[in-house]
Amino acid sequence: MKRNLFIVSSILCIAIFLIGCGSTDGTNTEEAKDGNKVETAEDKNTQDFPVTIEHDGEEITINEKPENILPLSLDVTEILLELVDPSRVVAISSSVEDEHLSTHTEKAEEIPNRVSTAAYIDPEEVLAYETDLLLLTKMHGQEEDASSILSEIDLPIITFETMGTLAQFMENIEVIGQAVGETEKAAELIEQMENDITAIQGKIPEDQDAPSVLVLSEVGAGTGPFMMGPGNISYDLIQLAGATPAVDQIGLEGSTPASIEQVMKMDPDYIFLLDFFGNGEEDFTELSENPGWGSLQAIENDRVKLLDVKYLMNPNVEVIKGLEIMVDWIYGLE
């Protein structure tokens, strides 16, 4: 009898030991009874490398998950910092520190290195950071040249065209998510943006005529105000808000320096003034002090709003908030 009890106890001890060895702490892959692997939390967040990305008619192969990523344009930096920890970003441009331009000023403080923008890129500077993925947007002739120079370096490089619509912005979130091994985060971000857009557009009155909206902004130091036209994301936001871009009335094909004569010709229902440098309405003095400015219906009806550039002109996730601000304001929903 004692012998039988001993045998049973031994079997139970061995079983418990085996169960303990087979248990998982959430970091190993379990196997189901049918022999198929069960996906754990870590497996779900892990993307296999190498990956080959098809983008803009090219194939870019990334052999290992990038840990030293260098974004050379503000818009790609905005996307990147939505998807990865700042520790994986080796350097950024100083524009990310500006709260008027960027949505990630706090994360910028965690990244110690600063780099020239894509317009003035130095290949030696790129190599010095031991970069394993380079991201940049082609917006100027210098950036086109930089892209050609960097293509001679043995380094994964993804270049983007100007992100002139929300659809293009979200497409590039997907591309960058795949490149940095964060496809799930990218998909979740895109889904959230799409849901937010749908909810905002659901507030637009169906029985109201589409108002005309003009966006004025500087585009750099000393440029003076520009009338933002096709090719800038603000143009797309106006349309998503169910409004009409005022620049369509003068056949504007792209953003161009503002003149009081053209603004008077458009005579928009609403005007957004975008604050690029934190100077408020001061940067629009030349326009506002012209006698013709006071004759605009937007001025007479007090329909001028000042916003930071990041909400309407720079591609980032906060343009969704900019879209909501626009819809609430122009349809009197505030």
Rank of each mutant, 00 (worst) to 15 (best):
L240R: 13
L240I: 13
L240W: 15
A241T: 11
G242I: 07
G242P: 10
G242V: 09
A243L: 12
T244R: 13
P245R: 13
P245S: 05
P245T: 12
P245A: 03
P245V: 12
V247L: 05
V247M: 05
V247T: 08
V247D: 05
V247A: 05
V247F: 04
D248Y: 13
D248H: 09
Q249I: 14
Q249P: 10
Q249D: 09
Q249R: 06
I250Y: 11
I250A: 03
I250V: 07
I250C: 08
G251D: 11
G251F: 05
G251V: 04
E253Q: 13
S255F: 05
S255D: 01
S255T: 00
T256K: 09
T256C: 03
P257W: 06
P257V: 00
S259G: 01
S259Y: 03
I260L: 00
I260W: 04
E261V: 00
E261F: 04
V263F: 15
V263I: 15
M264K: 07
M264C: 00
M264T: 05
K265Y: 03
K265C: 05
K265M: 03
M266V: 09
D267F: 06
D267G: 04
P268D: 08
P268F: 07
Y270S: 01
Y270R: 02
Y270G: 01
I271H: 07
I271N: 10
F272N: 03
F272W: 13
F272Y: 10
L273C: 01
L274P: 15
D275L: 14
D275G: 15
F276A: 07
F277V: 01
F277S: 09
G278F: 15
G278N: 13
G278W: 14
N279C: 04
G280Q: 06
G280C: 00
G280E: 10
G280K: 02
E281Y: 03
E281N: 01
E281R: 02
E282C: 00
D283Y: 05
D283V: 01
D283C: 02
D283F: 03
D283G: 01
F284Y: 14
F284R: 06
F284I: 11
T285Y: 10
T285M: 06
T285F: 04
T285S: 03
L287R: 04
S288D: 06
E289W: 02
E289G: 04
N290R: 02
N290V: 00
N290T: 00
P291Q: 06
G292L: 09
G292I: 06
G292C: 06
W293L: 14
W293E: 10
W293M: 10
G294D: 15
G294I: 15
S295Q: 13
S295G: 08
S295C: 08
Q297A: 14
Q297D: 14
Q297R: 12
A298Y: 12
A298W: 13
A298T: 09
I299G: 08
E300G: 03
